Amino acid sequence: MPKTARRAAAAAVLALAVGGGVAACGEGQPVAAPAAGPILTAIGDATSVPPPPDERAPVTQAAPAEAAISFPRTGSGQWMFTPGSDEVAGPAGRLMRYRIAIETDIDGVGPGEFAKAIRTILGDPRGWTAGGQWRLQQVGPSDSADFTIYLATPASRDKLCGGTPDSYTSCRNGSNVVLNVARWANAVPNYGAPLDVYRQYMVTHETGHRLGQGHELCPGPGQRAPVMEQQTLGLHGCVPNPWPFPDGGREYAGPSGEYDDPIPAGDS
């Protein structure tokens, strides 16, 4: 969505909210959005994590030219929730419903295109639904959901994730699956795979945490990295891999554990 169109949509939804057309109910779950449009809600309504000190000065981070994504370090904490879908990924297993929300300050990521990318990743036959334990479905902002996937600016990532702020990684915190837009736009240095592969990894890894998966280690030099290895911080001799079932058959995993890798400074 072009920047001006998104701002207009956000303003229209905000006007409805002020006028009583949009509200939030118990535990910060929003009620129905305007027909065929996004819903705007404050980050304070989306999470119980207290916000950090106010940071108003925006620092725009420019993505590679082909990505055409820009964003401030500190966003507004206002979200566009996308409409749901009838698609259900996976033939069997427990149904897990998820919402999708994009912070309104992010330019160059259309809500519809982003939601489609998330559904495609989570519905891939090499993903979490391949083992028959899980089915996944995107729902709308007024529907009951098991988790929400946020595309957040670095400072909002820190609010939603809780713990020690780093503005660099993505995370899962309770029912929040938080994708740092800096990583969505720029991936990480020396990852060794295209941006699309890194995006598949970050979505699958953080969703894996919501499905009860812990961190894993590289099983050996030159082998595929388990999707639950912290590939953002280092591959430790493995090669990038974004899937738990990379061959569509038996689940691929490594030894349980995590490395003591330093987290890079900043939010680029």
Rank of each mutant, 00 (worst) to 15 (best):
A62Y: 05
G93R: 09
A57H: 11
T47F: 02
I118K: 00
A9V: 10
A23F: 02
T82S: 14
F71C: 03
G20K: 03
A63F: 01
Q78A: 12
D54H: 05
I102A: 05
A42C: 02
V31S: 13
G75D: 09
P83N: 12
S76R: 13
S70T: 15
S76I: 06
L16C: 09
F71E: 02
A17W: 09
V31D: 13
I118D: 01
G37S: 15
A65E: 09
A62E: 11
A68M: 04
E87M: 10
P34M: 09
R119G: 07
V13T: 10
K116W: 02
I118P: 00
R119I: 02
G19T: 08
P51T: 06
L122C: 05
A10V: 15
Q29R: 15
R94P: 04
I106M: 07
G44W: 01
R97E: 10
A32D: 13
P38L: 07
V31L: 14
A117W: 03
T74A: 15
P38S: 08
A17P: 04
D54E: 11
A42Y: 01
P38W: 10
T120P: 01
A9K: 11
G19S: 14
V49Y: 05
D107N: 14
A24G: 05
P38Y: 09
A67Q: 15
R119Q: 15
F71Q: 02
W79M: 04
I43K: 00
P72D: 08
Q61C: 06
T120I: 03
G28R: 04
T82K: 03
A17E: 13
D86Q: 13
M80V: 02
A42T: 03
L40D: 04
G44I: 00
P50H: 06
G28K: 03
R99M: 01
T74F: 15
K116E: 13
P51W: 03
W79S: 00
A24S: 05
V88F: 05
G110L: 06
P64Q: 05
P51C: 02
A117L: 14
D86R: 15
A57K: 12
A23I: 00
T41W: 00
M96H: 12
G77V: 12
G37I: 03
I43P: 01
L95G: 11
A92F: 04
E27Y: 04
Q78V: 14
A17T: 13
G19V: 06
I121N: 03
A24C: 09
S85H: 09
G26S: 12
P30F: 07
A67V: 14
G108V: 11
A92E: 13
T104K: 08
R99I: 01
M96F: 11
I43F: 02
G21H: 00
P34T: 10
R73K: 11
G19A: 15
A65R: 09
L14V: 11
A92Q: 14
A62S: 04
Q78I: 14
E103Q: 13
V18C: 02
D105M: 10
A35K: 12
D86Y: 04
G20M: 06
V22P: 01
G110D: 15
E55H: 14
G75H: 05
S70Q: 08
G75N: 08
R97K: 15
R94D: 12
G44H: 00
D105K: 08
V49W: 01
A89K: 03
A12P: 01
C25E: 09
S48L: 05
G110S: 15
R94I: 12
A12M: 08
G26L: 10
F114I: 07
